[in-house]
């Protein structure tokens, strides 16, 4: 999967957790989940759980801590997909 493919799938995972759909449509790798998308920090856990289910991967707690913006999310998910593959 390319980073662009992961990004477009990631948008769907994030969608239920942000009220700002316009901002979500225009996200890039620098978009911060909490500061820019105004996602409740407690909900980051739910995004990670949903991503695990979607990509059939496991994201350990330490890697999850790195998932702060869209770019780092793609890093971690991409890495796990490659490991699984």
């Amino acid at each position: 999967m390319t980073r662009q493919e992961i990004l477009s799938e990631l948008k769907k995972v994030i969608a239920p957790y942000t009220a700002n759909k316009e901002l979500l449509a225009g996200i890039n790798e620098d978009t911060d989940l909490i500061k820019d998308l105004k996602i409740n920090s407690a909900n980051l856990v739910d995004i990670i759980i949903d991503a695990e289910a979607k990509y059939k991967i496991e994201i350990d707690y330490d890697s999850a801590d790195k998932m702060i913006n869209v770019g780092t999310c793609i890093d971690v998910i991409g890495e796990r997909i490659n490991q699984a593959g």
Binding site: P16, T18, A19, D46
Partner: peptide, 8 residues
């Protein structure tokens, strides 16, 4: 309530 609150 917001969609975000309703989800879950």
């Amino acid at each position: 309530i917001s969609e975000v609150t309703l989800h879950g």
